[in-house]
Design a protein around this nucleic acid. Structure first.
Lengths: 205, 205
DNA sequence: GTCTATACACTGATAGAC
DNA sequence: GTCTATCAGTGTATAGAC
């Protein structure tokens, strides 16, 4: 109850939460929502069964929490890339570099796997798929105006910009599956490959 | 035991197998391996619990059976596209058309979802992920020599052809996730978008 | 061959001691 | 706040009648 005690408590709380979310991130990304068990999560986190449920009311809530965090940090990265001054095409190049870096290496790659798992298994949780789809759309539609601009300047391919944006982010999710192959192939992917999806080809129609 | 009886039995057997595999394909594609339950599969197939187990020894075997079929038909489609006469680049264009058609519409799209589910949840079944990765590699490596040839003729982008092949098929898997969004977006994807991954850009380095 | 009923294991979640 | 032990529900698989 003393001020000092409160600070200590909050620190412990923060540490426990960190252990749980980081363990859950790892296990969910690897095994999917249904495939992951609370037992695995408790084991990886090093905490007991009861303590995990002291901080989170359910397995589903942990998963949703990770999904929300994944989207928020993705949107932040997207905005960062879009906000740098430059032409529309330069923004696309910039975004592609960031996405390749984030989706395919380090801890942030786990968040892309979480989004992929949410998409492929969303139907196992009532209402989740709709939620994920809605957030995904809001996410990739931020790219649409940039594509339109890049089409006008003749650097981006022609075609429905919404479809192109959807295809572009689908590609990122597809690339994330390379992580599962465990051969390090994902590290060999260069931003150029992703950029190419939107780049105008050599020959005109 | 009579000849006539045997024929009838085999026909019934074939029908039951068809009902089971087609129901399992649908349910597994939608919910993933762990998310799908035998109860769902029996319900969709219209058959009883016991009968499904009369034809398949386990849930895992049904899933593996579908995976094998998915790979075999994919390889068949790949070979078909590669065998038509023409330049290397024309083969890539041809393959892309077939893949976009197969992966994104009709029943064959379910097989692409099965491969995606196997990849994202492979760790839930001991040994499965290794198996899937190995088959995937054998699959997309058939594209490597064609890419090399198309690079020589100057139509394909430069870069490690193995990485390009991996990226190309990752894209297809990523596009398959559009089916989950249920907005019909996947039907708007045109082969051009897929081809663009391998096409050489306008500007040289 | 086909079914229903059930065994058995596992998993998410809770209770209650400390 | 943290733990262990346990409950209730679900899921795969089997047994046994027809």
């Amino acid at each position: 109850m003393s001020p000092r005690g409160q600070v200590r408590n909050e620190q412990m709380r923060a540490e426990a939460l960190e252990k749980i979310t980081s363990a859950a991130l790892e296990v969910f990304a690897e095994y999917g929502y249904k495939g992951a068990t609370m037992k695995q999560i408790t084991k990886v986190s090093g905490l007991s069964y009861g303590l995990v449920y002291y901080y989170f009311p359910s397995k589903e809530r942990i998963f949703r929490h990770l999904i929300d965090f994944a989207f928020e940090s993705s949107i932040f990265a997207l905005n960062t890339a879009m906000d740098v001054p430059g032409t529309a095409w330069e923004k696309i190049e910039n975004l592609s570099t960031i996405l390749v870096r984030n989706a395919l290496s380090g801890e942030s790659s786990l968040y892309f796997l979480i989004m992929l798992q949410a998409m492929t298994q969303g139907k196992s949780i009532p209402g989740l798929l709709d939620y994920v789809v809605k957030r995904s759309e809001a996410y990739y539609e931020k790219l649409v105006p940039v594509i339109i601009q890049a089409q006008k300047s003749g650097e981006a391919v022609k075609g429905d910009p919404v479809v192109l944006a959807a295809a572009y982010f689908s590609f990122v999710q597809g690339l994330a599956t390379l992580v599962f192959q465990g051969k390090g192939m994902e590290k060999k992917i260069i931003p150029e490959i992703l950029i190419n999806v939107l780049r105008k080809g050599g020959q005109e129609k």
